[in-house]
C-alpha cells in the first residue's frame, strides 16, 4: 500500500512539475515582447552567456575535430579511402557532434550558471523585491536569459563545427599528409546543404530551446535555500544532458531514419 502511494506520489509530482514548467514557458513567451522594446537586455545576456561558453566551445571543437581526423584516417586508410577523410569529419560534425557536444558543454557551463543565478536571486528575495517594485521578473530576468541562451547555442554549435573541421584539416592535411584539395573537395561534394547543414542547425535550435528552458525553469522553481539552489543546478546539468541525448536520438531517426 505504502509503495503504491509512494510511486503514485512520485508520478504526480513529476507530472505537476511538467505542468508548471509548461505554464512557465508560456509566461516566458508572453514576457518575450519586452525584448523588442529593450533589445539591450537581450544583447547583454547574449554577451554574458556567449563569453561564458565561447572558450570551452572553441577548445573542445578543435580537439574533437583533431581526434576525429586521427581515428577516421586510421580506419579509412585500411580501405584506401583516406580521400574521404574530409567528408567523414565534416558529416560527423555537422550532423551529430557539433550540435550534441556543444549542447552538452553549454548545459554544463552556461545552463548551470543560469540556474544558479536565477535560483540565488530567488533565495535572496531579489525576485520578490522586483515583483513588489512592479517589475515582472519573468519579463525582466527570465525572458532575456531564455532567448539569449537559445540564440547563443545555435551560434555556438555552428562555431563548434567550423572549428572542428579546421582541427580535422590540421591533423589530416598537415600532420597525416592527406592532399588539401582532396580533403576540401570531398567535403564539398558530399555535404548536402539541406540534408546535413540544415538538419544540424535544426538540432541545435531544438537543443538550445530545451537546455535553456530547463535551466531557467530549474532556477525559477528552485527551493529558495542554499541547498535548494545547489540541487537545482545539479538537476539542470543532468536533465538537460539526458534531454539532449534523447532528443538527438529522436531527431536523428526522424531525419535520417528512412535513408
Amino acid at each position: 500500500m505504502k509503495l503504491f502511494a509512494l510511486i503514485g506520489g512520485g508520478v504526480i509530482a513529476h507530472i505537476s512539475r511538467l505542468g508548471r514548467a509548461s505554464v512557465f514557458l508560456y509566461r516566458v513567451f508572453l514576457g518575450g515582447w519586452q525584448i523588442f522594446t529593450r533589445p539591450s537586455l537581450l544583447v547583454h545576456q547574449i554577451y554574458a552567456v556567449g563569453v561564458l561558453t565561447l572558450t570551452i566551445i572553441l577548445v573542445a571543437g578543435l580537439f574533437v575535430g583533431m581526434v576525429l581526423s586521427f581515428q577516421g584516417y586510421n580506419t579509412l586508410v585500411d580501405f584506401g579511402a583516406e580521400s574521404s577523410l574530409g567528408l567523414m569529419v565534416a558529416l560527423s560534425l555537422t550532423r551529430e557532434l557539433g550540435p550534441v557536444l556543444a549542447a552538452l558543454l553549454f548545459a554544463g557551463r552556461a545552463g548551470s550558471a543560469l540556474t544558479a543565478e536565477i535560483g540565488l536571486m530567488k533565495a535572496t528575495q531579489q525576485l520578490a523585491g522586483m515583483e513588489m517594485m512592479a517589475v515582472n521578473p519573468i519579463e525582466r530576468v527570465v525572458a532575456p536569459r531564455f532567448f539569449a541562451g537559445f540564440f547563443s547555442l545555435t551560434l555556438l554549435a555552428t562555431l563548434f563545427t567550423a572549428v572542428g573541421v579546421a582541427g580535422g584539416h590540421f591533423i589530416g592535411v598537415t600532420v597525416l599528409g592527406v592532399d588539401a584539395g582532396v580533403f576540401w573537395s570531398s567535403m564539398q561534394e558530399g555535404v548536402d546543404f539541406h540534408d546535413d547543414i540544415v538538419s544540424g542547425i535544426v538540432k541545435s535550435i531544438v537543443f538550445g530551446f530545451v537546455v535553456t528552458w530547463i535551466a531557467v525553469f530549474e532556477g525559477y522553481d528552485a527551493v529558495p535555500t542554499a541547498e535548494g539552489v545547489s540541487r537545482a543546478t545539479t538537476r539542470t546539468v543532468v536533465n538537460a544532458s539526458l534531454a539532449v541525448l534523447a532528443l538527438d536520438f529522436i531527431l536523428t531517426s526522424l531525419m535520417f531514419g528512412d535513408v
Binding site: 536571486m121 535572496t124 528575495q125 531579489q126 520578490a128 515583483e131 513588489m132 517594485m133 512592479a134 515582472n136
Partner: peptide, 19 residues
Amino acid sequence: LYALRRRMGMLFQSGALLT
C-alpha cells in the same frame, strides 16, 4: 496589480537589493 504596486514601496526583511 502591477499598477497598484507601483504606488507601494516595500522594505524586505532581508533588504532584497539587486546584488
